[in-house]
Design a protein around this nucleic acid. Structure first.
Lengths: 207, 207
DNA sequence: CCGCCTATCCCCGAAAAACAGGAGTTTTTC
DNA sequence: GAAAAACTCCTGTTTTTCGGGGATAGGCGG
């Protein structure tokens, strides 16, 4: 069972592709079969050849890596995808994993971690780099309040600048109900008023 | 005048460093004299040896590249700094240039552009990659409103959740004055109320 | 010197939000 | 099937914001 792992890279930064190539060039167990700098050229490549693993940047130019991830997984369920990003934001990590990625590493990974990640996911397991895993855990511990669907709707309409009355009209509920939701939003996000509510919600990426 | 240009890299992503090294390895006019993955180790290196050009990532782990840029320029005015970043946000570009950088390129730069950038700034000129220049121009055309100092102060205090009264106390001005500033903020940012004001200001990175 | 901008201050009234507190119905969860 | 959570609605009062105004004073550049 000493087959080489065929790896394909999708990243719109040429220097990152070169960097990965340089990191992996002496790994005999890994063979780089190509790279793409856009979602489209990735899809094209896959029609001709399927690698075992795709290293995929999360934020591509046009299509977000998250969409591409879902698309690839749908058509080629056998390919394992390792998400690659500068940011260790739990929201990104989660979205990527939800869309079928088998792992997530930050771009400041060491060669060892990258190799470990590739060889882990190719076995069908999940791999998260230390920092990614840590930030996921941190986000679960740091109580980012859970908003109900209604609260989210109300929140985003408030953020757009609608008043309680207007929100009420839009959602076909009473103004007082909107006010109630607003109150619980203030309470959950620990905000004093609308201004701090919107600021906090933005920081927590709830909007 | 065929001296090689001594280049030093500061980036906390190992694969980016490798990528740049790979991009520049065949350039005879450019010599890579080292790299650092943190602001501190960059400073340490400079105490022993000074390159002609530093390729500096804008968002390092601890210290932001913007601060490091100012620090280096203060101590070694002769070193030219080329900002390096994933984002082409005018705010970043501008801050970097304000702090003494001689240029700015995005990480999806081509080898040619990178080489051109390095050889341009080493002559004391300014270099902006096409996309960076474009986004700068775009931001100047798209009227991101210019806030006065007072308006900025008021805005950030409002965002923290202070009422007009509290802002007034904090800034030692009258409540009605704060209200005037608030009104001009609403007008400048084209906001209907506090909620949309904060959202828009956040999106425009004014907070 | 005369606009233009900034910063300061003031008034009024209407609208909206915040605060307090209660309460009924549906839906989810255990 | 009961408890918990989510969603709905209500009555008040107080505070804050918003939309109109208008006014003064200093700085800066044409």
């Amino acid at each position: 069972m000493n087959m080489t792992i065929k790896v394909f890279i999708v990243d719109d930064h040429y220097m990152v592709i070169e960097g990965i190539r340089s990191l992996l060039q002496h790994e005999t167990a890994i063979e780089l079969v190509g790279h793409a700098m856009s979602a489209d050229s990735c899809i094209s490549f896959l029609r001709q050849q399927q690698p075992d693993v795709i290293l995929m940047d999360i934020n591509l130019a046009e299509k977000s890596g998250i969409e591409l991830c879902a698309e690839v997984k749908k058509q080629y369920p056998g390919i394992f995808i390792l998400g690659l990003s500068t940011f260790n934001q739990q929201s990104f990590i989660r979205k990527m994993m939800d869309n079928g990625a088998s792992g997530y590493v930050l771009k400041n990974v060491t060669r060892e971690e990258l190799v470990e990640g590739i060889s882990t996911i190719v076995k069908g397991k999940i791999y998260l780099s230390h920092e990614a895993a840590r930030s996921l855990r941190a986000s679960e511990e740091s109580d980012v309040p859970v908003l109900t669907r209604r609260e989210q709707q109300v929140l985003s309409l408030i953020a757009e600048g609608l008043t309680n009355n207007e929100v009420a009209e839009k959602l076909f509920i009473s103004t007082t109900t909107v006010d109630t939701h607003r109150k619980s939003l203030l309470a959950k996000l620990n905000a004093r008023n609308t201004a701090s509510l919107i600021r906090i919600a933005t920081q927590l990426q709830l909007i």
